[in-house]
Design a protein around this nucleic acid. Structure first.
Length: 684
DNA sequence: GACATCGTAAACACGT
DNA sequence: CACGTGTTTACGATGT
């Protein structure tokens, strides 16, 4: 019977994770939403392109509209890019196939957000500065490219129409023809002004300017660049040609650089995207281009230099004309590389090059992420994590060997999804990347010491732990305590504790044998866990004083620990709640690391305080609700009535337990020692 | 290197 | 007998 019920509950644990289930389902749903989100985005994009082509064919879209559209489209692309980034980051090594955009799981938040309109600020929050940079540049590049394509088509079309009309115009009334030609020419002019403005804008943002050396330098360094370096010259030469046909007056006018273009205002939007970049000191973003562009050679230092001029020669792609000085170069630039079709075409090619490089960069970044994930997170073997690997009982020594060999012998294998997830998208809670899986199983304790933040940390990241197959950085003891304290009654049966573990941590959903054993072991071993016989069985409670007692020793000397803790928390978890907790909590450790010698600590802690400190966490401390009976603070103690041994006595010294089974009440204040002694004696 | 803490494995007892 | 629950011991890893 018991057995059945027990196993039932355990089995229901997974299903009992229904509660969790809903959450993990959320996550899954998130993934689904992510993929689903991709589709719509693509759809929009596609439709956008259709619209574009429609505009092309009709030639009826005004430049302003076009711009707006282009920006929208760029945003879509950005969104897609975001999704890809997220998904690729999410999926560790598995997806070499770059098609990560497909069905990988996307963090819920990202997926959800990306489904709606993302403001630059939002994107900024989601993406790291480098990513933002790349994204923005890609966006700009795309806009420019599309603009230019559009311009080109328009021009060609206009020329065609012009030609045909000139021929046909012989028979037509001169006025009509003149009007139409005028209209065409005006349109053309307008377009070219737009184009010019756009180019200037981009140049101002440093996007265009970086082109020159890109073609020759960095590109070759990239092995798999889609554009083969050797192709570039041909590209340049070849691209120059198409521009040539347009040689008539219309273009001449368009080339006029002098036109200050009142249209400038319409371009206000693109630049506004850039501001966010400025305050990112990160070396990665802009630099990906800028730094690579300049080999820190001559022109870096001289502010008077020109990005297209270096080493005494023109860096315009495919040019390499030697120029004595900057002035000569400027002259050369204005004459040879004026804003004409050829230059535009070359610019376009450069855009493509940049795009390719960016894609390449993205791929390489992805690879890097995967590598880091692999190295940091321990081997992410493609094992199906569904199967709990059961430690074969019987080969104890053997298993131990394996343990030492493999940092995480147990279930740590990650499903392709979760492994990388922690790396970036979802903040692996209190752990810096380094400390993440520091090493074997035991390492978590480092975090544990600061222990109580566990609650806030958990509160902050419980979503993460729920879904990510990451071992929580807390000791079993602290976890158990947390589980117990989270309940209104502050008591749990063993089974409920199990359930809590599985509910709260994906990691504990498998490999049950080991951690359950560990839980039992901890419950029995630590004095801070008190077993209370209940009508319906036995429940476990926490003796906060005991719990507090055992910590001090460790923490004492290591400010680094505190620092780590804080930094770790600050990562994602440091928030108001934590700070508040820190502030109000009587937690001696946190508030003043100095006063921790066990003796004083324990003595200093009257129950009330103790209680406060214990729940260094928000929830229970507010005792307002929970305490049905007795003085709020006391639970743990009173309940702890537990068994006969001397243990009981000391804790309740502050407040006598209930009338219940309290045997040897009288415990000298320092029983603590006695207890331990007793424990030792008992053992022997 | 000693010590403390922690995690893991395992043996054992007991109750259902 | 099987299983869950508890207790205890042992060992290895890690940090101080």
């Amino acid at each position: 019977m018991m057995v059945e019920s027990a196993s039932e509950t355990i089995r229901s644990a997974p299903s009992g994770q229904n509660g969790v289930g809903s959450l993990s389902a959320q996550a899954d749903g998130g993934g689904g939403a992510g993929t689903a989100g991709t589709a719509p985005a693509a759809g929009r994009d596609a439709s956008g392109r259709e619209a574009a082509s429609g505009a092309d064919s009709n030639g009826e879209m005004s430049p302003a509209e076009l711009l707006h559209f282009q920006q929208q489209q760029a945003l879509q692309v950005a969104r897609q890019f975001l999704l890809q980034q997220a998904s690729s980051l999410n999926s560790p090594g598995n997806n070499d196939s770059k098609q990560s955009a497909s069905a990988v799981q996307v963090p819920v938040s990202v997926a959800m957000m990306s489904q709606q309109m993302l403001t630059p600020q939002q994107m900024q929050q989601i993406l790291s500065p480098p990513q933002l940079q790349a994204l923005l540049q890609q966006q700009q590049a795309l806009m420019l490219q599309q603009l230019q394509e559009y311009y080109k088509k328009q021009q060609e079309q206009l020329h065609l129409q012009l030609l045909s009309q000139q021929q046909a115009g012989k028979q037509q009334p001169k006025e009509a023809l003149g009007n139409k030609q005028l209209a065409f020419q005006q349109q053309l002019l307008q377009m070219q002004q737009l184009q010019q403005q756009h180019l200037l804008n981009l140049q101002r943002q440093g996007l265009v300017s970086l082109q020159p050396s890109q073609a020759s330098g960095p590109l070759q360094a990239l092995p798999q660049a889609a554009v083969c370096p050797t192709d570039l010259p041909q590209l340049w030469k070849g691209e120059g040609a198409p521009g040539q046909p347009a040689e008539d007056g219309g273009r001449q006018e368009g080339l006029d650089l002098a036109s200050p273009a009142a249209t400038a205002t319409s371009f206000a939007s693109p630049p506004k995207v850039s501001p966010p970049l400025s305050h990112h000191p990160l070396p990665n973003g802009q630099p990906t281009v800028l730094t690579s562009r300049r080999d820190s050679s001559s022109h870096e230092e001289t502010p008077s230099s020109h990005p297209l001029y270096g080493h005494g020669e023109c860096k315009w792609p495919g040019c390499e004309t030697l120029c004595e000085d900057l002035g000569q170069f400027i002259k050369h630039l204005n004459t040879e590389h004026a804003l004409d079709d050829r230059s535009t075409a070359q610019c376009r090619v450069q855009m493509q090059v940049v795009q390719q490089l960016e894609i390449q960069l993205a791929k390489e970044s992805e690879r890097l992420q995967a590598m880091m994930a692999h190295l940091h997170m321990r081997p992410s073997e493609p094992k199906p994590f569904s199967q709990p690997l059961n430690p074969v009982p019987g080969s104890s020594s053997f298993s131990k060997v394996t343990v030492s060999a493999d940092p995480f012998p147990d279930g740590l294998v990650h499903p392709p999804t979760s492994a990388a997830a922690p790396v970036t998208p979802l903040r692996p809670p209190g752990l810096g990347s380094a400390s993440l899986h520091g090493g074997g199983p035991a390492r978590r304790r480092s975090n544990d010491k600061f222990c109580s933040p566990i609650s806030s940390e958990l509160a902050q990241n419980h979503e993460f732990y729920k879904n990510a197959d990451v071992r929580p950085p807390f000791t079993y003891a602290s976890l158990i305590r947390q589980a117990i304290l989270e309940t209104p009654d502050r008591q749990l049966t063993l089974n409920e504790i199990y359930n809590w573990f599985t509910r709260m941590f994906a990691y504990f959903r498998r490999n049950t044998a080991t951690w359950k054993n560990a839980v039992r072991h901890n419950l029995s071993l630590h004095k801070c866990f008190v077993r209370v016989e209940n009508v319906k069985g036995a429940v476990w409670t926490v003796d906060e004083r005991e719990y507090q007692k055992r910590r001090p020793p460790k923490m004492t000397g290591s400010p680094t620990l505190v620092k780590n803790m804080i930094s770790g928390l600050s990562y994602g978890a440091l928030n108001a709640s934590y700070q508040a907790a820190l502030a109000e909590s009587s937690f001696p450790l946190l508030s003043s690391p100095g006063m921790l010698n066990p003796g004083s600590a324990s003595s200093l802690l009257p129950l009330s305080q103790d209680d406060m400190g214990a729940p260094g966490e928000p929830l229970p401390s507010n005792g307002s609700s929970s305490p049905p009976r007795l003085s709020p603070p006391q639970y743990s103690h009173q309940i702890q009535v537990k068994e006969e041994p001397a243990e009981a006595e000391e804790d309740r010294r502050p407040g006598p337990p209930l009338g219940a089974p309290n045997p040897s009440t009288v415990g000298p204040p320092e029983d603590r020692d006695l207890e331990e002694d007793l424990a030792g004696e008992d053992m022997s």
